[in-house]
Design a protein around this nucleic acid. Structure first.
Length: 201
DNA sequence: CTAAGGATTAACT
DNA sequence: GTTAATCCTTAGT
């Protein structure tokens, strides 16, 4: 039932399509030997060098963005505001700096461990709704920068149980007002009606 | 070498 | 609804 997404899923040229396809897929980690995971309900696409909101815009190549030029199927994890690790999936072929940011998941596997990591006592959307908190629940850290998503530490799965009747909503991305024209692209995708999406409006 | 600022969150009022 | 926390990356000197 549950199959890891193959390399060909990530190497496709249309990052916006990949971001849309990731809604309803599962992200899992086995960190410290403990399986945790959930269903992806919110993503954003960042489209390489021509996207002002992308870290690698205008071909910017730095130690941090270097992994974005890798062939699709590896993790780009970076720290924001000195506090939170944000997890991105690198897509497209080598040399194209496309990425999909995972913004929210619905907790499914290893919920007790995720509650522990987040210091929550009860299951609620706050556990994994938001790009900086879902990584904490899953145990993803900046040290996982560059991890191959075909391995056994962090991976994505298709459980072929995308709920029918749920639509995917496209809207402008969050927190990228500085990106000018590019801020208007409807490259944020959410599962309609899901209580597990991020609080950002 | 130094300084400014960020793809956010949690704890407030 | 508002605001402080917090530190790495980047760009400029």
């Amino acid at each position: 039932m549950a199959e890891k997404l193959p390399p060909a899923f990530y190497t496709r040229a249309d990052v916006v399509q990949v971001a849309r396809d990731l809604i309803g897929k599962y992200i899992c980690t086995r960190i410290d030997g403990i399986l945790t995971g959930g269903r992806i309900v919110e993503t954003e696409a960042y489209s390489g060098e021509n996207d002002m909101a992308c870290h690698a815009n205008a071909g910017k190549r730095t130690p941090r963005t270097e992994i974005m030029y890798h062939e699709g199927g590896v993790a780009y994890v970076y720290l924001i505001y000195g506090l939170y690790a944000l997890f991105n999936v690198i897509t497209n072929v080598a040399g194209k700096a496309d990425a999909v940011l995972i913004r929210a998941i619905e907790p499914v596997d290893g919920i007790p461990e995720m509650l522990l990591r987040r210091q929550h006592s009860r299951l609620s959307p706050k556990l994994t709704a938001g790009p900086g908190v879902l990584t904490r629940a899953l145990g993803i850290q900046v040290a996982h920068y560059g991890t191959a998503l075909t391995g056994d530490l962090i991976w994505l799965e298709d459980r072929q149980e995308m709920p029918s009747g749920n639509q995917i909503i496209a809207s402008p991305r969050v927190g990228v007002a500085y990106a000018g024209e590019d801020a208007r692209h409807p490259w944020r995708f959410r599962l309609q009606g899901s209580p597990w999406t991020s609080p950002a409006k």
